[in-house]
């Protein structure tokens, strides 16, 4: 039996599968289907300092390779997440989660981190500087290395937990961005958030999504994200969590081979709520087939 454990900044998780932010809620909605304690960790819905209603409907469109969304960071705000949601989450989930935080100013991120960092269920902070669906926040920080570094430094100064930065493929020079973040003290990188995309209605020719554009996710972006991980891995020392389009155990193996230490999975779990447990079931067989005893040995295999 292969060993699925991986270590992320000194904290071990029992397998490298991490349901991604915004596609797993707070874990509760999957309980009808499987015991969410099967995953090593998961990332909670993007949290902002103030409650957000998100964008009007429609927020969802489809394409051959997956979906587009413009949910727009609907969440009850950091205080409610800490005081009301995380205590509920602890009843159903015993591991530690990634607190995905977002904002519209450096101060927003800092305050959000101050509130969530001390929570016992939070194992890592995940800085979402990559949301394409809000104006004047999110991705605006992730496309400019100076802004990104400023957010990171402010958050690092108020947090005790490892800080992972979730990057956007819209960054003009992603390698430079990742190196700048590493230098500024990032504990890890999450590559990537969604790609900016658009769908128009066949009949009217007008945008389907209320926010005109949306974030493209799902199997269709897998090769694009894989290429970015392959590109960044040799250029940084900190761990990379791969995220984008993973839907099978083989995708997990491939993404780890490109350099990912662990893998987040979003859209696949929305399309089929059983996809994560199915992947977990298949992974040991893949390791056996490959003659690998520790899954962590696969990380960066492409370069060995």
């Amino acid at each position: 039996m292969g060993n699925l454990n991986v270590v992320l900044s000194g904290q071990e998780i029992k397998n490298p599968l991490i349901p991604a932010s915004g596609a797993f809620g707070y874990g509760m909605d999957f309980l009808d289907f499987w015991d969410v304690n099967e995953v090593g960790s998961f990332s909670i819905k993007g949290t902002t300092i103030l409650p957000r209603e998100g964008n009007p409907l429609p927020r969802i469109a489809e394409y051959e390779g997956g979906m587009l969304n413009c949910v727009g960071l609907q969440n009850p705000g950091a205080e409610a997440v800490r005081n009301e949601i995380l205590p509920e989450l602890r009843k159903i989930y015993h591991g530690k989660v990634f607190a995905n935080i977002s904002g519209f100013s450096i101060e927003d991120y800092e305050k959000c981190a101050e509130i969530l960092d001390p929570d016992p269920s939070v194992g890592w902070l995940e800085l979402n500087i990559s949301c394409p669906n809000v104006h004047g926040g999110g991705m605006a920080f992730g496309t400019d290395p100076d802004n990104a570094v400023a957010v990171l430094k402010a958050v690092k100064a108020v947090s005790t937990k490892p800080v992972y930065v979730k990057c956007t493929p819209q960054a003009p020079d992603l390698t430079y961005m990742c190196q700048a973040l590493e230098q500024a003290g990032a504990d890890g990188l999450v590559l990537l958030n969604t790609y900016l995309g658009l769908r128009l209605d066949y009949r009217t020719g007008k945008p389907i999504l209320s926010n005109t554009t949306g974030g493209v996710s799902g199997p269709g972006i897998f090769p694009l994200v894989l290429q970015k991980i392959y590109q960044i891995y040799p250029k940084v020392q900190i761990p990379i969590i791969g995220c984008g389009g993973v839907s099978t155990a083989r995708d997990v193996i491939e993404m780890m081979s490109a350099g990912a230490a662990a893998v987040e999975i979003g859209t696949a779990g929305l399309i089929d709520p059983m996809s994560v447990p199915k992947i977990l079931q298949d992974l040991p067989r893949c390791l056996e087939e490959l003659g690998v005893s520790n899954i962590s040995d696969l990380t960066g295999r492409a370069f060995k």
Binding site: G22, A23, F24, G25, M28, D29, F30, D32, K45, E53, G54, L57, P58, R59, I60, A61, M67, N69, V71, Q74, I208, G269, L270, I271, P273
Partner: peptide, 22 residues
């Protein structure tokens, strides 16, 4: 009706504003 992502509550793709919140 609403366009849906997951259909089971995980994605917030179908939320509407009501007197009881989102």
């Amino acid at each position: 009706e609403a366009r849906m992502g997951c259909g089971f509550g995980a994605c917030m793709g179908c939320s509407i504003k009501t007197r009881n919140g989102m």
